[in-house]
Structures are given as structure tokens and as C-alpha cells.
Amino acid sequence: MTTSVLSTRNLTKQYGSGSARFDALTGVTIDIAEGESVAIVGKSGSGKSTLMHILALLDSPTSGELDVDGVAAAKLKGTRLNALRNRTFGFVFQQFFLTPNTTVLDNVMLPLKIAKIGTRERKRRALEALEQLELSDKAKAKTTELSGGQKQRVVIARALVNNPRIIFADEPTGNLDSATSAVVEDLLFRLNQEKGITLVIVTHDEELAARASRRIYLKDGCVVDGTEVAA
């Protein structure tokens, strides 16, 4: 049976205090199993990005618990936390976050560099990842010379180069036209199906969400059922 890689109990997140207090999450309890593709759907301000950031250990919840692989995230500190981020997670962002004025290859190698992997091995694996995304010919190109679709494919190559178990995608197609979006979506779901990488997609795009094996709808920081959001 599939086991739960990410599970939360009653997560809350507040920003500010007093009259300026804003509750981004008000008690979220979810379970994400290994190999699932989950879409976190909601309008802007629904708390979906906040939830993803907490799941990816980029942010900490105000209260509630988060287990990653059965380990309480609150107990992860320093080296173990960094090792977990480095080996378990891959990120795909709407804004790409590629380092300008450096080559595609350098960008893809970054997670391996952080992981202290040797130069030759680093290059081999990065080229392999670029190959999978049909970007081998762009390895030496500067990131600024690429089109939006190419940039997002570089980002995906970077996300999967370290063989992560979970890929977090924050509005992965937000900046792309529909034809390119389709290519990127295909790529992400193929990784999920072929490699069994757990996929967590944050989106407000119903069409993209529909392709995920499961959808979690958020409204005002709460998990609601699908019909409510659509209404």
C-alpha cells in the first residue's frame, strides 16, 4: 500500500498580530501519499501558496503538525533539514527563478553543487536531465536567451536532477501560453507516472487541476469540497 509522505494535522498560519492579523490557514488537515499527483486549488488569497510553502518546509506553521515521511517537521533543524530539502524536494516556480547571466547547465547543476557532488558526476547528471527535456543543445546557452517554455523546462530539469521524491510546482504554467503550458503539464505528469515522483501542484487553473489524481480545494484557509469553490 502507499504510505503517506506528507501529512498535516490542523495546520494554521497567521500573519501579523492584533487588528492587522490575517489568518492565511485555519486548520488544514491533509494527507499526501507517495506517488500521488495532488492539485491544491483555490483563488488568490485562499492560502494555497502558504500551504505549499509549509509543506515544502520553506515556511513554518503557526500551529499544527506536519510530518514528512513520518518525521515531525518541527524537529528537523540545521543539517538534517537542509539535507531533506536538498534530496527530497524539487521546485518548479511560476517565476522560474533561474540565475541570470549563467548558463542553463549551471542552473541545472545548482542542486547537485549544493549536495556536494563532484564536478564530473554533476555535469553528467545535469546533461542527462536536460536530455530528458530535449534541451541538450541549450546547455551552454545563457538563461536570458531562452523562451518562457524553454525556461520552464530548464526549471523542471533542475527540479528533477537530484532525483527528488516530491516535486512542488507553484503555478507552473502561470507565465506560459496554452501550447507551451500543455507541453510543461505533460512533462510534469509524465514524471509522476513514469518515475513515481509525488507531484504537488498549486494552481487556480481548473484544467490543470483536473489532470491531477486528486484535488484539494482551499477557501479562506480551509479545505472545502470542490462544489463549494466552483459556486
Partner: peptide, 13 residues
């Protein structure tokens, strides 16, 4: 700033 954030997200201490 974003590059630093990214490196941290990727597990750089």
C-alpha cells in the same frame, strides 16, 4: 535575494 532564497530552498545552509 531570490537566488539566495532558491539556494536555501534547495538545502544550502
Amino acid at each position: 535575494t531570490r537566488e539566495i532564497g532558491l539556494m536555501k530552498a534547495m538545502g544550502m545552509s
